[in-house]
Design a binder for these strands. Sequence first.
DNA 1: CTCCAGGTTCCGG
DNA 2: CCGGAACATGGA
Length: 287
Amino acid sequence: MEEERALVEMGVEDFDLAGTLSCGQVFHWERRGAGWVGAMGDSAVYLEQKEAKLFLSAGEEDRVRNYLSLDHPWQTIRESFPSDPALDLAVEFCGGMRIIRQPSWECLATFITSSLKRVEQIGKISLRLRRSFGERLECIGGEVFSYPRAEKIAGLREEDLRACGLGFRAKSLLGSARMIAEGQVDLVKVRAMDDEGAMEELRRLPGVGEKVANCGLLFGFERLGAFPIDVWIERVLIEGYFSGESGVSRERLREFTRDYFGRFGGYAQQYLFHHARTTGVRIGRQG
DNA sequence: CTCCAGGTTCCGG
DNA sequence: CCGGAACATGGA
């Protein structure tokens, strides 16, 4: 078919496309047939994996390689991990999953809208914002939409955002977009800061606390040592590393995760998160 | 109908 | 510094 010719093939090693796109680090990729469609920033692309081959929209090879972090040294990362029952299991389950390079604003904005929402809901909010206020793009799998720029959102009203299902998060997203549009926070400068400085700067934005800032740093600024602690990771840590002890303080968890998981701690975190969430380990809940 | 979701912020002790 | 509560919305 005519469309088939617009796909090119790329060899990949130690890579899992489905896991990478659906592990909860990015929320707007949609399944289309045997593959996925979505926007990498302002570029639409179709992606499909068959074993060690990746099929993608022609002309997007370099962007895809970069976006999917195919250059990350997966074996090195894996070997840098400590060995313990919880992490060993998660690494085996998540083999080939990459921390991708998301544009910093859309990553940060998406996580601002993530608080007290399930992963599926975060995706729906992202897609509604994109369809309502983003740019329409086309690729082989159909149409997709880019994430609206901070300047675009800054010009909207809170109720416009609430119409996309944001609830109380609308105020935070709007406030953050305005601070960035006005230049009060410069994400380009954040990129040049050290981890602590970047964290401090991001937390000036409304709706950005420690957890969201860490997600931003890990997924949007390639700080692979950042270790976001959410309710899932907290359970995993307490069950797997603190013998189920109750009342482990935030500070103790922070201190433990800062050194224990090594310089690629963010990778370990995402593997633990995805494994726990996917295998349905739910402590303190029935079912 | 009730409960809860990749949290943040504000408040009182 | 710490624990609690409010905060909107939608799906189970």
